[in-house]
């Protein structure tokens, strides 16, 4: 086969198959991420919208802080409280990777040391240890009950 004919065949292959294959690759990646790191089915190009009630907007990040006296308090984190922008918050709730939650934990512990920070209200007395976990909503059609269950394992951060 001449080089020109081979080039034409490759180009035809790209025109007819490249984009459908790209769709398959992206959608397969989304399915894998949804079942490994807890990616919300609504995002990531896997066509999981309207298949699960697990939208990132409904997810919560629960924070358990332990102060110097060993007292534990549970908080629901918000972008305002964590002092992070909406885009980062959306990314965190949609793709709750352990490494991202750890970074968030360190950031919170560092910020908590600053008296002017809003995070200091989470744990005003020398917070040394935080446990962060992302939760999602579940619904049971038979019982009519709605509840939250973890999407991720507990991520522990200590300073």
């Amino acid at each position: 086969m001449s080089q020109e004919r081979l080039k034409n065949k490759v180009f035809l292959g790209i025109q007819y198959w490249a984009i459908p294959l790209l769709l398959i690759l992206v959608a397969s990646r989304q399915m894998i991420l949804a079942h490994t790191v807890g990616l919300s089915p609504w995002h990531g190009g896997g066509f999981g919208m309207f298949a699960s009630i697990d939208r990132d907007e409904r997810r919560i990040i629960r924070l358990q802080s332990t102060d110097c006296r060993g007292q534990q308090t549970v908080h629901v984190l918000t972008p305002e409280l964590a002092e992070i922008d909406e885009q980062t918050w959306t990314y965190l709730t949609t793709v709750p990777k352990t490494s991202l939650l750890q970074s968030l934990g360190y950031q919170l512990l560092t910020l908590a040391g600053e008296p002017t920070s809003r995070v200091s209200t989470v744990s005003s007395t020398c917070p040394r240890h935080l446990e962060i976990q992302v939760w999602r909503l579940h619904y049971n059609q038979a019982s009519g009950q709605v509840w939250y269950a973890p999407v991720t394992a507990v991520v522990e951060v200590t300073l």
């Binding site: 629901v76 019982s143 509840w147």
Partner: peptide, 12 residues
């Protein structure tokens, strides 16, 4: 539920 972090089952 979302604001308070209530995780226990509630009835819709």
């Amino acid at each position: 539920m979302q604001a308070t972090g209530e995780i226990n089952p509630q009835l819709l």
